[in-house]
């Protein structure tokens, strides 16, 4: 319950934060990580309890406040938009956002819960600010460098893992799938992924 309220407060405070100039990107990053950690992930082979599902609703809502939905869904598909019919494009973006939330939020939560990480001070970038963090997953003997790319209004517009941009990776992936299977193939693949994720939940 405590986490739920925390997330809710964070979400409500977000617009206030955006009004501050300049934003404290490092603090935003820490808040984002905390929001990720608030997401409940099921144990292997088990489903989430009703309470956890309820808590996740609030956590998801809080996280939505950090992420720039338009940037994260629009930027990867824009170069391929010509292949879509208008209604297909908006439906695809909506489904992609939903699926991304269902996958990225719990996975990121699990990741940051298991990781030891250190943040470096924010650096200005073309879009706004970058906050780099070095994460160590001791259980997997994995070290990774993550960069959180913030817009000037304090929304997350991209995430780089070991230098590879998430937006760019999605853009490339969509391009490959469209090339191999067409837009319908891409939509089918996304629907299958969504079904898989929701089925698991």
């Amino acid at each position: 319950m405590m986490i739920r309220y925390t997330c809710l407060i964070l979400a409500l405070l977000t617009p206030l934060t955006l009004q501050a100039e300049p934003i404290d990107a490092q603090a935003r990053a820490e808040a984002l990580i905390a929001a990720f950690k608030a997401v409940k992930a099921p144990h292997e082979g088990q489903a989430l309890s009703a309470a956890d599902l309820k808590a996740n609703e609030a956590a998801f809502l809080a996280l939505d406040g950090f992420l720039d939905r338009e940037a994260l869904t629009h930027a990867p598909i824009t170069p391929h938009a010509a292949h879509f019919k208008p209604e297909q494009l908006s439906a695809f973006k909506a489904l992609f956002w939903q699926t991304l939330r269902l996958v990225a939020y719990p996975n990121s939560g699990a990741f940051f819960a298991a990781a030891r990480y250190t943040l470096t001070p924010a650096k200005p970038s073309k879009e706004g600010f970058d906050v780099a963090l070095h994460a160590v997953l001791e259980a997997e003997d994995l070290e990774t460098d993550i960069t959180l790319h913030w817009s000037r209004d304090g929304r997350l517009v991209d995430v780089s893992f070991d230098g590879a941009s998430l937006v760019l990776d999605y853009r490339n992936q969509f391009g490959r799938v469209i090339k191999d299977k067409g837009v319908e193939g891409l939509i089918r693949a996304l629907e299958a992924k969504h079904a898989q994720v929701t089925g698991a939940k």
Partner: peptide
């Protein structure tokens, strides 16, 4: 491998 470990990445392929 980085994508595979990226918790925010959806593998559609």
């Amino acid at each position: 491998e980085a994508r595979r470990h990226n918790p925010m990445y959806l593998d559609l392929e």
